[in-house]
Design a protein around this nucleic acid. Structure first.
Lengths: 221, 221
DNA sequence: TGAATAGTGTCTGTAAGACAATATTCC
DNA sequence: GGAATATTGTCTTACAGACACTATTCA
């Protein structure tokens, strides 16, 4: 083994103004002190139950955000990615609605468009790109985007989330057919209105059974 | 950090008698000395270029098999999975045709059906199940199964590989249409005959362009 | 009533599977 | 020629997208 540095990094993603944003913050210590980077930190062998637990802890400590959707992304490693030495970073990506970030209201968190080529330390640019590509690929056949839409949402809102992720318009009828056959949403009795002068849309939430299913898929990772 | 044990484990998969098999071997040291387990070992910070490199090295050392298709699976971690202490295992899965294993002819390698509930040390049973589930899920929309078929193969052979993975028969016309539109195979001039008394089948190989494409997908992981 | 968006019904073209015909080899 | 499997052609059915119609709210 010969001294391997073990860390976690979290790619916290959200939708804002119909664009995918990643949460970055200034590093509070060396290396790359004061440089904008992904929230990350050491794995604590004396406290963390596993790497996922470490990722949840780091996210909470650095951004104040708790228990969002969190999935293991990949592990990056090598002698050159961290100036301190041979290192491993077990990376995760998390999905939240933008109002969760607003509610946490952490002063250091900067939301940056994933497409903007902001220079990032370590291999964080590669990690962000891997996370975005994974999210887009999984969104084609899963309920993942619901986590970007928040706790409750209307079908038109959810469709805009999918469209923002995919970067192209979706056929409304096909979209609703697919959502229906996935059978993952349940209607809420209260209705909802946005710009006022038109028919209000039904509010939905993700079925709890479906949340468990997604968690089961990621069990152990 | 506090002393984290960093290892790699490899799930080497192959098809034999139309069933998916995993390569296991007796451990040559503690813990679990002489117990059947996945090939694995420490990451060498003074020699390995990254975890993937460590996995390739371990696979070569323990099974004699080189440069197969290798993809990162996931990272497993925690205080309890290894009796030596808080540990991380970056896991990979590799795909080879059974004749590659036969040619390596390593005396300690045992091929075991992935469905047989052989008891395995550490969390290796979970790792194997994760690998099999990932392979099956990816096989539905990729050229992955070609790596189980070997260097060259006929379309009927390749179809049997897909059917063995999926566990259900595939429509021949649909299968060939899909293969054609994926445009991943190239015909080889020499023909091929199996049970003799019938029309021989065309031999194919995976286009080299397509191998690169798959590697690109996994870049950095 | 008109504007605006939500929600649904229907038509059409594309793609997947069933079925079957043709092709090629060895005996 | 007969058996066996490879390969290709065609028909039918299911599904995705286009289009358009109805529904509901506010001004």
């Amino acid at each position: 083994m010969n001294q391997v540095i073990c860390t976690v990094d979290v790619v916290l993603l959200t939708l804002q103004d119909d664009g995918l944003k990643v949460a970055l913050l200034k590093r509070d210590r060396e290396p790359f002190k004061d440089v904008i980077a992904l929230p990350g930190g050491y794995i604590h062998a004396d406290g963390d139950r596993d790497a996922r637990d470490a990722a949840l802890r780091v996210l909470k400590e650095k951004t104040g955000i708790e228990a969002p959707y969190l999935e293991q992304l990949a592990t990056f490693s090598g002698p050159a990615r961290d100036p301190r030495g041979w290192s491993i970073s077990v990376t995760y990506y998390a999905l939240v609605s933008s109002d969760v970030i607003e509610r946490a209201n952490h002063p250091d968190v900067k939301l940056t468009s994933v497409d903007r080529q902001v220079k990032l330390p370590f291999d964080h640019r590669l990690i962000v790109e891997t996370a975005v590509s994974r999210l887009r690929s999984k969104s084609q056949y899963s309920s993942l985007p619901c986590y970007l839409a928040g706790e409750t949402f209307t079908l038109p809102q959810l469709q805009r989330v999918y469209e923002a992720l995919m970067g192209e318009p979706i056929n409304k009828v096909s979209f609703r057919r697919k959502i229906t056959e996935m059978d993952m949403l349940e209607a809420i009795e209260g209705k909802f209105e946005a710009a006022g002068a038109h028919r209000p849309a039904q509010l939905y939430r993700l079925k709890s059974k479906f949340k468990q299913q997604l968690q089961l898929l990621e069990r152990g990772l």
